[in-house]
Each structure stands twice: as structure tokens, then as C-alpha cells.
Computed example of a mutant assay.
Amino acid sequence: MATLINDRIDVRISKEQKELIKYASSLKGFKSLSEFIVYCVSSEANKIIMENETILKTIEDKKIFVDAILNPPTPGEGLKKAQEAALKLKINGI
């Protein structure tokens, strides 16, 4: 199935960079330099997105999260008032 091409990106690179990219492309067996570049850029973009969408990125983040679940802090006054207000609404059928 052919890929539909409907947009273009122009990039200026040095001759050395182009030769390096062409060599890597040929080693991987890509049919064209464009195909190789699109593959590499898409792969890297997906990695970056996945890394940035991860909520608990570090071990420290995970420790803090687990500690909060296992040892929850006592409710503050604001939370207690909100709970009371919610209970009143529930009792009144709202």
C-alpha cells in the first residue's frame, strides 16, 4: 500500500551530515533517504511524546506516590468542610 504524501519539510544540512545519513539509510536498507528520515524522525517523536506523557517519571516520583497511598495525610479543614457539604447534598437528594 502506497503512502500518501501531502506535506513537505525542507531542511538544510551540511554535506557531511547528508553523507552520514545516506550511509546509515543504506545500512538499514531503506529505499530512499526521505523514507529513512521520516522513519527516524517519527520514531524519535514518538519516544519524546511517550517520555513526556509518563506521569511517574523517576523512582523518586514512584516512591512519593506509593507513600501517599500507603500513608495518606490526615484531611485538612477544607476537605472536611467539602465532605460535610457533599453529605448534606446527598441527604437532601441533590
Rank of each mutant, 00 (worst) to 15 (best):
K88L: 10
S26G: 12
I94M: 03
I48G: 04
D61Y: 02
S34G: 14
F36C: 10
K31Y: 11
E19L: 15
C40S: 09
L27P: 05
L89K: 14
P72C: 10
P73E: 09
K57S: 06
I91K: 04
I48R: 05
A68D: 09
A2Q: 10
D61V: 06
E51H: 11
E77I: 05
D67I: 00
A86H: 01
N46W: 07
T58F: 04
D7L: 02
E77P: 05
L33I: 14
I91W: 06
E19Y: 13
Y39F: 14
E77C: 02
L20F: 14
E35Q: 15
E77G: 08
D10N: 13
N6K: 13
A68G: 09
R12L: 15
L56Q: 00
D10R: 11
P75K: 07
K18H: 15
I69W: 02
I69D: 00
I49L: 11
I37R: 04
S42G: 05
G93M: 01
I37Y: 03
G78E: 04
F36M: 07
P72E: 07
A86Q: 07
K31S: 14
I13C: 12
T3F: 07
K57I: 01
Y39P: 04
K18G: 09
A24P: 00
D67R: 08
K62V: 09
E60T: 04
S42M: 12
G29S: 11
I59H: 08
E44W: 10
P72D: 01
R12Q: 14
G76H: 04
G76I: 01
K22C: 06
D67S: 10
L56V: 03
K28L: 14
D10Q: 06
K80D: 01
L70C: 07
S25G: 15
I94E: 11
Q17F: 08
N46F: 07
K90S: 02
K18N: 13
F30D: 08
G29F: 11
L33T: 12
I5G: 05
K88C: 01
K88T: 01
A85K: 01
V41N: 10
V38G: 03
A82G: 05
I64Y: 00
S34T: 15
I48S: 01
K31N: 14
D7P: 01
D67H: 00
K47W: 02
G93H: 02
K88E: 04
I69P: 03
E16A: 14
D7W: 06
A45W: 01
K81P: 00
M50C: 00
I64M: 00
K22Y: 12
M50H: 03
E16V: 13
A86L: 05
I13R: 09
A86C: 00
A68F: 03
L4I: 14
I48P: 00
S14A: 08
K15N: 13
N46K: 13
E51Y: 01
